[in-house]
Amino acid sequence: MSKDVANKNIKLARTLLLVAVAMFGFGYALVPLYDVLCEWKWIERDRPDDIKKVPEVAYQIDRNREVTVEFMTTLNESTPMKFRAEKKQLKVHPGEYYTVNFYAENKTDNAMVARAIPSFSPAVISSYFEKIECFCFSEQTFKAKEAKIMPMRFVINPALPEQYKTITLSYTFFDNTEKSVKK
């Protein structure tokens, strides 16, 4: 191989290596990109971004409509807790404010940090389900054997399209104790 060709080869190899490194970066860039794309208004959001607190505003209450809200409570893997909602379901009018209590208990003899993550079905209604108060806004700390009653206050925006008559709100509690200790 002549010197000339050898140099050309090494130059090209370097360029291609740079492309590979850039693509490694691109993989990481997909993380923020994913969040941005999920925020776009024209995409009917499937990923509920409902950990946001919304200020309480007065809506026109729509007494003619009734929507059934179902509550589901789940524990991730073997999170050592008890967790349930005070009612399985609630019939609500769009525009009216309601408070539902959730009951959670730490079954262990140690302090625990846990996080509740909400999820909606059908996913699109997450943007009409506004929370004024929720235990899911932040991590919850439990003392050993501590039990808590946690209120969740919400309203369904009257702009909710007519076809949605039943919606399901599911909460999953994750045990974050280990992670928060390491942090």
């Binding site: 291609l16 590979a20 490194v21 693509m23 490694f24 691109f26 993989g27 990481y28 993380v31």
Partner: peptide
């Protein structure tokens, strides 16, 4: 390959 293998490497690194 140059375009995708690094992306996979990134995913498993995450």
């Amino acid at each position: 390959l140059i375009a995708i293998m690094p992306v996979f490497a990134g995913a498993v690194t995450m």
